[in-house]
Design a protein around this nucleic acid. Structure first.
Ligand SMILES: O=c1ccn([C@H]2C[C@H](O)[C@@H](COP(=O)(O)OP(=O)(O)OP(=O)(O)O)O2)c(=O)[nH]1
Ligand SMILES: [Mg+2]
Length: 329
DNA sequence: GCGCAGCGTCC
DNA sequence: GGACGC
DNA sequence: GCGC
């Protein structure tokens, strides 16, 4: 029995509801048996009283009462969801525009004060809505890898994100690039620059959503760079795709892979676990000796202890290694 | 009743 | 510093 | 909304 319960997120209250619905859904999806009662549902971790109750309704009535009279403000929900599906449009803009009486994407296209990313998001809207088959993700991964290896043949490039978790299709392409024993911001920025120049000349990168910025302070410190843009394989019928490229210090490669492979819920759970053990986990690594004040606010940086490999981080956290395909929650 | 990840860029 | 994104 |  499949279950889907979708909601709209508007930060600070509904936000965590939606996250918990997602957690419950993936927990249920991981089961290999049918749920036939509310009591049975209640036993599943992350399925609490309220969600179990709804499952109970679904089993006995075939529907969820709450959903019946939900259509009420459905117009607002639908329009907000549509607006938020545009890159660069979040909860705030979507609501603001709805309240101004805007209803369609063509209404948005007429606005004079769109940001650069919103303009791109609207321009490539249809293409960006399309899922990307694994085969095309691989092809795109190779384009980036060859561009990188032109500079130094020992540069490594890996496709991460949902692709690495084994999904049959992906929302975008997430790539992590690193070079053995290269850690400094200066060297890594040059690698990033080279890759981008190369891919722009090729006509592969056609638009930029967010560019890495160079600041010469701490040029010799380990520092990573993130690029976000729009790419397109050569050929007529090819579709524009959203691509994120991360160039990272060799010592942070494991942490970066862990982060960029996700999924987001898995990252947040691991980071929470680290925090509860006096540590901090980020895309740069695992840090110990982290002090936290009231409201769990971090008081110090902590000391970097792991991040070269993913396994190192799992080990240091004292949890079993998870293969990428197992990192769904 | 409380907290819920951590960090970067754009504007 | 908020909005938006990964 | 969930777990502590
Ligand atoms: O709020 C977020 C969003 C993403 N990520 C990490 C995990 C995620 O797997 C990775 C890449 O993000 P993306 O948005 O591309 O997600 P995905 O898991 O690759 O799914 P999709 O197929 O939609 O691209 O970045 C986070 O840590 N927090
Ligand atoms: Mg992705």
């Amino acid at each position: 029995m499949g279950y889907y319960e979708d909601n709209q997120t508007k930060d600070n209250k509904y936000h965590f509801k939606v996250i918990n619905y997602r957690k419950a859904i993936t927990a249920i999806r991981a089961l290999d048996y049918e749920i036939t009662s509310e009591e049975m549902a209640r036993k599943i971790p992350r399925v609490g009283k309220k969600i179990a109750q709804k499952i109970g309704e679904c089993v006995s009535l075939g529907r969820i009462k709450k959903l019946d009279h939900l259509d009420w403000d459905q117009e607002r929900l639908k329009v907000e969801t549509l607006f938020r599906s545009v890159y660069g449009v979040g909860a705030e803009k979507a609501l603001e525009w709805y309240n101004k009486g805007l209803r369609t994407l063509d209404d948005l296209r007429k606005l004079p004060d769109l940001t650069k990313n919103q303009i791109s998001g609207l321009h490539y809207y249809d293409d960006l809505q399309k899922r990307i088959p694994r085969a095309e993700v691989e092809e795109i991964g190779k384009v980036v890898e060859s561009a990188a290896k032109k500079l130094h043949p020992d540069i490594q490039s890996q496709v991460t994100g949902s692709y690495r978790r084994g999904k049959p299709d992906c929302g975008d392409i997430d790539i992590v690039v690193a070079r053995p024993d290269i850690d400094t911001g200066e060297e890594l920025f040059l690698i990033m620059e080279h890759i981008l120049n190369e891919l722009i000349i090729q006509g592969f990168l056609v638009d930029h959503l967010s560019l890495p910025t160079w600041s010469d302070d701490m040029a010799n410190a380990p520092k990573h760079f993130k690029y976000m843009g729009i790419c397109k394989l050569p050929g007529k019928g090819s579709v524009h795709r959203h691509i994120d490229i991360l160039v990272v210090p060799w010592i942070h490669l494991g942490a970066a892979l862990l982060y960029f492979t996700g999924n987001d819920i898995c990252n947040r759970s691991m980071r929470l676990l680290a925090a509860n053990r006096g540590m901090r986990l980020s895309d740069k690594g695992l840090f110990t000796g982290v002090m936290r004040g009231p409201k769990r606010k971090r008081l110090n940086e902590g000391t970097w202890v792991a991040g070269r490999t993913e396994r190192e981080i799992f080990d240091y956290l004292g949890i079993n290694y998870l293969e990428p395909f197992e990192r769904e929650c």
